[in-house]
Amino acid sequence: MKKVYCKPESMTDIEHKYCPGCGHGLVHRLVAEVIDELGVRERTIGIAPVGCAVFAYDYWNFDVTEAPHGRPPAVATGIKRVLPDRIVFTYQGDGDLAAIGMAETVHAANRGENITVIFINNAIYGMTTGQMAPTTLLGMKTTTTPFGRDKNLAGYPIKVCELLATLAGTAYLERCAVNNVKNIINTKKAIKKAFEMQKENKGYSLIEVLSQCPPNWGLSLKESLKFVQEDMTKQFPLGVIKDIYA
């Protein structure tokens, strides 16, 4: 008997504190697998956000630092410029990246920093129990939009990949999901490509991952997987948004 699938070396034994069915743990594992496959564990530095993934440094078995809310791209810029041989990536949610950290995100992308951003888009504020996020879909019910998001009151959901695609500094932008096995495998490929590009000094890359949040959406697991597949992908179409080397 031979072990074919097991916990990657880049993950610790600590149990995740996420809710059952959350996509964060999945993306943590995909990042860890990619780092193992590229053999860069010893020289990887991750930057954890404020939000549900705030304890990411406990789960990864490589160097991870914590940044103030929304500032991981600024911290990553500093680390990458001082230590250019390291693989530097930020791991951010939609509240961190698209709300409070939008300025840092846009400017880091515009400067074309050679970093990788893993962006978890679950269309809601998870850690603070389900308020409206900038990426919340129109008509979606949250605790701060109990009658559904109204475009006259709260505007439209922000498409981060499309927004950053207009900037000359970005090299690779792709949107993926983790709602079924096929999408999970595609997400891993995208994350691997982004890290490889950083290794080759090809510039700024961002992988947006559509992730389910069953407790805060108020849906069962099956319903939330369906919501990602049918509603979220309509607003946020999957695929490569920009690849200047394609």
């Binding site: 008997m1 031979k2 072990k3 074919v4 699938y5 097991c6 916990k7 993950m11 149990e15 995740h16 996420y18 069915g21 959350c22 996509g23 964060h24 743990g25 999945l26 594992r29 079924n180 096995v181 999970i184 495998i185």
Partner: peptide, 14 residues
């Protein structure tokens, strides 16, 4: 294993 968010499953094969 592919879908487990908590890496709670390990697979062995002959």
């Amino acid at each position: 294993y592919q879908v487990c968010p908590d890496v709670a499953i390990e697979i062995w094969k002959d």
